[in-house]
Simulated scan of single mutants.
Amino acid sequence: MLEHIRIVLVNTTHPGNIGAVARAMKNMGLSDLCLVEPKHYPDEAATARASGATDILDNARVVSTLEEALADCQLVVGTSARGRHIPWPVINPRELGAIAMPLAGKSRVAVLFGREDRGLTNDELHACHHHVHIPSVEGFSSLNIAAAVQVICYELRMAKLLEDEQSKPQWGTDWDIELADHAELERMFEHLEQTLVDIDFLDPNNPRQLMTRLRRLLLRAVPDKVEVNVLRGILKSVNRGFGAGSSKDGDSTKESGEKGSQS
Score class of each variant (00 low, 15 high):
residue 134 I to K: 02
residue 190 E to C: 07
residue 13 T to M: 12
residue 149 V to C: 03
residue 104 A to G: 07
residue 190 E to G: 10
residue 11 N to Y: 12
residue 169 P to I: 07
residue 35 L to V: 04
residue 154 Y to A: 00
residue 219 L to G: 05
residue 116 E to S: 00
residue 76 V to A: 04
residue 140 F to E: 04
residue 76 V to W: 12
residue 176 D to G: 10
residue 67 E to S: 13
residue 221 A to V: 13
residue 93 P to E: 06
residue 16 G to T: 03
residue 195 T to H: 12
residue 132 V to L: 02
residue 67 E to N: 14
residue 95 E to T: 03
residue 165 E to T: 08
residue 223 P to L: 10
residue 114 G to S: 00
residue 196 L to D: 06
residue 183 A to E: 15
residue 89 P to I: 05
residue 208 R to E: 14
residue 85 H to Y: 12
residue 64 S to G: 09
residue 110 A to I: 12
residue 75 L to C: 10
residue 156 L to R: 00
residue 208 R to Q: 15
residue 32 D to I: 10
residue 75 L to N: 11
residue 112 L to T: 05
residue 238 V to I: 15
residue 17 N to K: 02
residue 161 L to F: 06
residue 142 S to Q: 05
residue 261 S to Y: 13
residue 6 R to E: 03
residue 4 H to K: 15
residue 198 D to P: 09
residue 46 A to Q: 04
residue 189 F to L: 12
residue 8 V to Y: 13
residue 185 L to N: 05
residue 107 S to T: 13
residue 172 G to Y: 06
residue 224 D to E: 12
residue 186 E to K: 13
residue 232 R to T: 07
residue 60 A to E: 03
residue 6 R to L: 08
residue 1 M to L: 12
residue 38 P to R: 06
residue 36 V to E: 01
residue 21 V to G: 05
residue 195 T to R: 13
residue 112 L to A: 03
residue 102 P to V: 04
residue 73 C to V: 12
residue 20 A to N: 02
residue 22 A to P: 08
residue 3 E to S: 14
residue 137 V to S: 02
residue 187 R to F: 06
residue 72 D to C: 07
residue 98 A to L: 14
residue 148 A to K: 01
residue 61 R to D: 08
residue 92 N to K: 03
residue 249 D to L: 06
residue 6 R to Q: 09
residue 138 E to Q: 11
residue 26 K to N: 06
residue 43 D to M: 08
residue 211 M to R: 03
residue 45 A to M: 14
residue 9 L to I: 02
residue 134 I to V: 08
residue 90 V to H: 11
residue 98 A to K: 14
residue 172 G to H: 06
residue 84 R to P: 07
residue 240 R to D: 13
residue 32 D to K: 11
residue 6 R to Y: 10
residue 240 R to Q: 14
residue 62 V to A: 02
residue 30 L to T: 00
residue 182 H to Q: 15
residue 260 G to A: 15
residue 85 H to I: 09
residue 39 K to G: 04
residue 181 D to Y: 13
residue 139 G to M: 01
residue 146 A to D: 01
residue 255 E to A: 00
residue 192 L to T: 09
residue 86 I to M: 10
residue 126 H to M: 14
residue 232 R to E: 15
residue 155 E to W: 04
residue 122 N to S: 07
residue 155 E to C: 04
residue 97 G to L: 00
residue 76 V to P: 09
residue 141 S to A: 12
residue 58 D to C: 03
residue 78 G to D: 07
residue 185 L to C: 08
residue 20 A to V: 00
residue 35 L to M: 02
residue 23 R to K: 08
residue 172 G to M: 03
residue 194 Q to V: 05
